[in-house]
Design a protein around this nucleic acid. Structure first.
Lengths: 231, 231
DNA sequence: CGCGAGCTTGACGTTGTTCAACTAGAGTGG
DNA sequence: CCACTCTAGTTGAACAACGTCAAGCTCGCG
């Protein structure tokens, strides 16, 4: 992890997060002035659960995981982060601490912006405020969905869901090469790596997916969807 | 469920939710004009998961449960609602649908307020907006905590947590009489009623709680806390 | 007095974790 | 170029945790 000044201005930034579209030029300049860019290598931590929430991040490039640190060093991955996302950790307004951790999975660059800047913009720009609010609602509702998943679906359904998420939302293809580890895949479904390994083998043998090392191909989306719904 | 005009004005309402403390007189009058009060009997539904989110509610009296409707008619209770709470369902700003259901547990009265009114106030009163934002953050973070609980704690820990929640947050005493059913207690911990029953018996026999029908007494808060933390 | 809903209890089967052994590949140093 | 080690991943067997099923109990209520 090393600090570096972005040669670009927020105005020209190709990674500019959607959230900033709602800012007027003065506000964007405020952000631009307070921001600094940091590069991360795989495995490095960006936010750590429990530390003070002093900055928000705009995720520029790479891939990261947002996860909860549970008991016995177990991790539960809530979701992955793609470029263009603006991550206003809950705790932003209440000046409290981070409720989750974020670590880089691939080489990543992020911009840090002081929460005070975001707060002051929130107060004067209600469109931006609404957008923030809507975002947290989306994350909240997906967490509620995850509660049901963890509580009422079996391993197969949960893993199927994780595979579909990777295929549809993250890698955007039926066939993809995992950049996350198998352990991280298991952590997304909230199951042990051993169980995950066994289920992948099952699905492969039954012809619903192809898997070879880190290469995965979803051969039967519909079956996996059904699996993830029924449980 | 029958509609009734509240004889009182919001200004004088003894149940006034904390959220309204941040409104100026004109805004409060807006709320007052658009509001209508409804009474519910135990078991009656206030919000239904999946229906359009057209109103927010201010919970005046009684007790209600916020729960997710999962598969096979299973319910997972997220939390209970006490008088004075202002419930802005996620979906408020995005005009989408309710992500959870709310039902009365005890005889309850609530005021419904149109979302459009709340939205317009949100736009002009950033203090109110901040408060809403802070609230959703709190609920979001408690849901994250629940994710870890469901995924990584055993039944004993989860039930201990539910008991402590009832004792500390809902009934406000070490000894209390359940107004929720045993099934609802189990739904709070995300376990089956049979398991819940067995664990309560265990805890009783080991002297950590007293339980007689619907009467429960927490005799060893510390032990239950430890149980809920470790697993 | 009998009925039904809510609750409890025991027996049993399933699900998923844990432990341990093993394999394969990637990096290291002679 | 070959051991050596280290980590990630796989596999199998044993076990614990938890849900399900079925039976019985209790109490309020007609």
């Amino acid at each position: 992890m090393f600090k570096e000044t972005n040669p670009l201005d927020c105005n020209d930034c190709v990674f500019q997060s959607k959230a900033f579209k709602f800012l007027n030029p003065e506000e964007l300049e405020l952000v631009n002035k307070s921001r600094f860019e940091v590069k991360y290598k795989p495995g490095e931590g960006i936010f750590k659960q429990g530390t003070a929430c002093t900055h928000v991040v705009s995720f520029n490039s790479g891939l990261a995981k947002i996860y909860l640190e549970g008991y016995n060093n177990k991790q539960l991955i809530i979701r992955l982060v793609k470029p263009g996302e603006f991550i206003a950790s809950p705790g932003l307004l209440s000046n409290s601490s981070h409720y989750y951790s974020i670590s880089a999975i691939e080489n990543s660059t992020v911009c840090f912006i002081e929460t005070s800047v975001i707060k002051s913009i929130f107060k004067q720009n209600h469109i931006f405020g609404e957008m923030l609010m809507r975002e947290i609602h989306v994350y909240y509702s997906s967490t509620l969905q995850k509660l049901i998943n963890l509580n009422q679906k079996n391993m197969h359904g949960r893993l199927a869901e994780a595979l579909l998420y990777l295929s549809n939302t993250i890698y955007g293809a039926d066939a993809f090469t995992l950049t996350i580890t198998k352990k991280e895949l298991a952590d997304m479904a909230g199951i042990s790596t051993e169980s995950s390994s066994r289920i992948l083998k099952d699905l492969h043998e039954q012809g619903y997916i192809n898997i070879n090392k880190k290469k995965i191909e979803i051969k039967d989306q519909k079956y996996l969807s059904r699996l993830s719904e029924i449980g």
